[in-house]
């Protein structure tokens, strides 16, 4: 158990180190010559209606060009809602095997 904690902590620190060392090479915010600003944005604005047949450009980007991202967003909503429902229901009745119920049975 203690070993697992040390492993988890070192993994988190390792990921943090990767993030801090690599964040310097990200493009500057509002950089007009960064990769997305040079050609991808223009392509979306010019071709979105023609390629996807959707009048709404935001929908075309969300559901077609970046569909993979929205696919990940859905389970996030579902899991968050499921967790909220389970917590709200669990707060209403004591769970089987919980400390409170065991204490009640003991008298």
């Amino acid at each position: 158990m203690k070993l697992m904690r040390i492993v988890a902590l070192s993994f988190v620190l390792f990921m943090a180190a990767i993030m801090f060392t690599s964040s310097g090479s990200l493009p500057q915010i509002y950089d007009p010559y960064s990769a997305p600003a040079v050609h991808i944005t223009d392509h979306y604005i010019e071709k979105a209606v023609e390629e996807t047949g959707t009048a709404n450009m935001v929908t075309a980007v969300l559901a077609d060009y970046r569909g993979y991202d929205t696919l990940g967003e859905k389970p996030v909503i579902f899991t968050a809602g499921l967790a909220a429902v389970l917590l709200l229901r669990a707060s209403r009745k004591p769970a089987v095997g919980s400390v409170k119920l065991a204490r009640q049975k003991r008298g």
């Binding site: 023609e50 390629e51 047949g53 959707t54 929908t59 559901a63 077609d64 859905k74 579902f78 809602g81």
Partner: peptide, 22 residues
Amino acid sequence: AEKHALGIMGIEVGVTLCVMAT
């Protein structure tokens, strides 16, 4: 383009069902 519009419509129906039911 019409196929793309159809696919987008399909996944939007899925998103709507998920959000509404949640």
